[in-house]
Each structure stands twice: as structure tokens, then as C-alpha cells.
Design a binder for these strands. Structure first.
Lengths: 130, 130
DNA sequence: CGGGATCCCGCGCGATACTG
DNA sequence: CAGTATCGCGCGGGATCCCG
């Protein structure tokens, strides 16, 4: 079983898989390259497409729209179109999306706290003769 | 910038990246296909190679050794060889590895609690005409 | 038993060009 | 401004065979 394509409904086998494994669900959701970064950028308030594009710098336009779509599909992000000319589109975290910030924060804290330990472990491992 | 290859030291650009972004570090660490599953299996105590292989079922042997290696490199897993014949090798979580279980638990709890909301959001999204 | 070495395929993702 | 469409590649990872 591979990770899931977030842009289409899962087939029966994938369904069992997701039902059986909530961790896989969340990793499929934020374990990809850009989702967590988008969620984090949206944590500080609603943003427009171009703002996100400039704020994240090296994200391609294609991945930005695609990731936003999948977050929207999962109900983590809401998309609002203002029919001005030129059109303005705003993205904001839904309450569900905001609820993800707390457990994510736990991981971030762990990462910050243990970063040096991990770095040291890697250095030691790489220094060993093998 | 792509995600990191966990089996070799990062180049200078990657170093800055990792230093700047602890979340990317942790996602590179457990966001791959098998790491979190291995950590979870090892949470219940030390296991031998074959035990893990059978316990996880559809992991390939190649990915099992490779993932264990990278976890070992990061100091999350300790590998002990018993020079019997045939040799026995035991893997166990280090204290650092165990410390990851708590923040991971937060994400798992979120996933379990919000699974239905996400499922419903996807269904609604897929039902919309577009 | 616990791996290593190779081969190879799919897809995640970047680059580029075009549109309402 | 906020996308869509198409092409192409790198690499994650499965399958298979071999080894001490």
C-alpha cells in the first residue's frame, strides 16, 4: 500500500487501509512536501493566493494550487472568491484546520528540542568506519 | 528544496534548510512510508529483524533494513548483534526514540478524533459538481 | 537468520507555456 | 491575479537474486 493521492476518492482497498490506520491518514495529509508549510502560513490569518506564493518562495505555482485543493477537499482550508476584477481569492483555515495546529505544535516542539541530539547522532553515525 | 535523504549527510544548502525548519526535520524523519510504523512496533519493546518483517507484513525487506538504518543513524533506534549462529539482531527504541512517542500520540489522537470530519468533508467535496 | 546488490517502474514534483 | 495544461525527470520503493 502506497501513500494516498489526496485529490481523488480512495478505492476499496485504500478505504480499509485508511480506516485501519489513523496515523497513515494524518501522515498522508501533512507528510507531503508542502501541506504543513501551507497550514503554518495560514495559521497567522487568511491569505490570498499571491501572498502564499511569495511567502513560501520556492513552491511552484502548480504545487501551491494542488496542495490548496487537497487541503480544501479535506475540510482544513476554506476558499472564498471575491468577484472583483481582477478576481481575488482568499484562503483561510477552517476550525478543523486550526485544530490541527495544536498536535502539530507538539511535533514542532519535539523537533526543536531534539534537533541537536539528532544532529549529534547523525554525526557520530557518519563518523563510524563501515 | 526536496525532502532529505536520511541516509547521507546533507549538503550546505540542505543544512541551512534543516536548521531553519524543525518541522521539515521531523517530517523528513517520520513522514516517509515506514518510519512511523517501525517506531510504533518498537514501542512495545525490542524486536528482532524477522519479527518486524512479519509484524508489518507488506514491508519489503529492502525498505525494512533501509528504514531501520536511517532510524539508527538519527539515534532513535539502537541495533544490537548477538554473535550466535545463526546471528540474532535486536532493535530497540533509544530514549530519544521513545520521547517521540508522546508528540506522535498527539497527532494520532487528532487523526482518530477528526477522521470522520475529514471523511465527510471529502465526500461533500467529491459530490460537488465541477 | 539478517541482510546486500541490482534492476526497474510509477508518480511526486518542477519547469514552462497559455487563459479568463 | 489566479489559475490550467502539458511535458519530463528524479527518486522512492517494490521485486528478485545472492551471501556469510
Amino acid at each position: 500500500m502506497s501513500t494516498l493521492n489526496l485529490l481523488r476518492p480512495p478505492n476499496p482497498e485504500e478505504l480499509r487501509y485508511v480506516a485501519d490506520c489513523p496515523i497513515r491518514t494524518v501522515l498522508d495529509r501533512i507528510g507531503d512536501k508542502w501541506s504543513y508549510l501551507l497550514v503554518l502560513h495560514l495559521a497567522s490569518g487568511p491569505k490570498r493566493f499571491g501572498e502564499l506564493r511569495r511567502g513560501i518562495e520556492d513552491i511552484s505555482q502548480r504545487m501551491l494550487t494542488e496542495t490548496l485543493r487537497s487541503l480544501q477537499r479535506d475540510g482544513l482550508v476554506a476558499r472564498t472568491v471575491f468577484p472583483t476584477t481582477p478576481p481575488a481569492v482568499e484562503y483561510r483555515l477552517t476550525p478543523l484546520g486550526q485544530s490541527l495546529l495544536e498536535p502539530m505544535g507538539g511535533l514542532v516542539a519535539w523537533a526543536i528540542g531534539q534537533a541537536e541530539a539528532i544532529r549529534a547522532a547523525r554525526e557520530a553515525y557518519d563518523a563510524e568506519p563501515r
